[in-house]
Amino acid sequence: MMRLPWFDYRAPRSVEEAAKILAWEGNGAMLIAGGTDLLPNMKRRHQMPQTLVSVRQVEALKKIANGSGLRLGAGLTLTELLAVRGLRERYRALAQAAAQVATPQLRNMGTLGGNLCLDTRCTYYNQNYEWRKAIDFCMKKDGEVCWVATASKRCLAVSSTDTAPALIALGARVKLVSAAGEREIALAELYQNDGIDYLKRKPDEILTEVLLPQPDGWRSSYWKLRRRGSFDFPLLGVAAAAKLAADGTVEAARLVLGAVSSHPLVIKSDALAGRKLTDDVIAEIGEAAQSRAKPMDNTDMDLRWRKHVVADFVGYALRELRGDDMSAMRLRIAKQLV
């Protein structure tokens, strides 16, 4: 049996109340939403919060609002997110990413906010206490060295959220609320390239909302590499979004890679502006992205191969943006049409 460690438990009903509790409890408290990331981690003794502050009863975190764009409450489950009317038509990459997270049961539980704040992952870390003890632990928790690169001064655990790359490509912003006030930042700014301190969120801040701009002619696409068609975290995620002129010329574009770094990796895609998505241009961008990706040997599948397919996956995403029928490839890769 893997029991949860002991904790005190609070279930506030409003964001204000939750923020007050976090401010009062200090670093010993952690938020819990769906618990699908935090509870396995607590069972493995990665995190042992003194107090769990559940946001399940905070109705305000379930709000969906249309206006100049779309505002999504961080407490929506991924299943509820996928049911948002028009999501697939307007923000396809987000729908494609959310539909490929974990399993249907886990999507009924896990939330958008929890997915964005998901802990980074590593084969030397996502193990139970005894396993980790047997290797004398590692830098991320209870130990000193990084077993992936023993000379490394920082932890290289992998950013494994599927929705973050998609949302960054879509230009999303997030709202963070604490007892001291609130701020709104670009989602890309929430992350930093450090497997331990992977979020720039302060411990007393609650992610309350995701704000998406009006699609305004932008198209988007998300492709995920994993061993099975269900369950598995991404070994590579590619999110692409572009605004195309009527003749197919790219006016603006964003490209973001997931699971090849400790944060979602934004690839400079200025080279696309003013050009059409021809096979040559797609190959050029794919190669540029591949050279930037630095996957580490701390997750499933062969390292070199994971790097090798970056260009292919960028190609699938850009071809989908261009309007190619990718359904056969989609079935091959995702084992479902998303």
Partner: peptide, 13 residues
């Protein structure tokens, strides 16, 4: 009415 995983659900919730 929704399929969920009992091993990742706090009983108090």
């Amino acid at each position: 009415g929704e399929p969920q995983l009992a091993c990742l659900k706090l009983a108090i919730e």
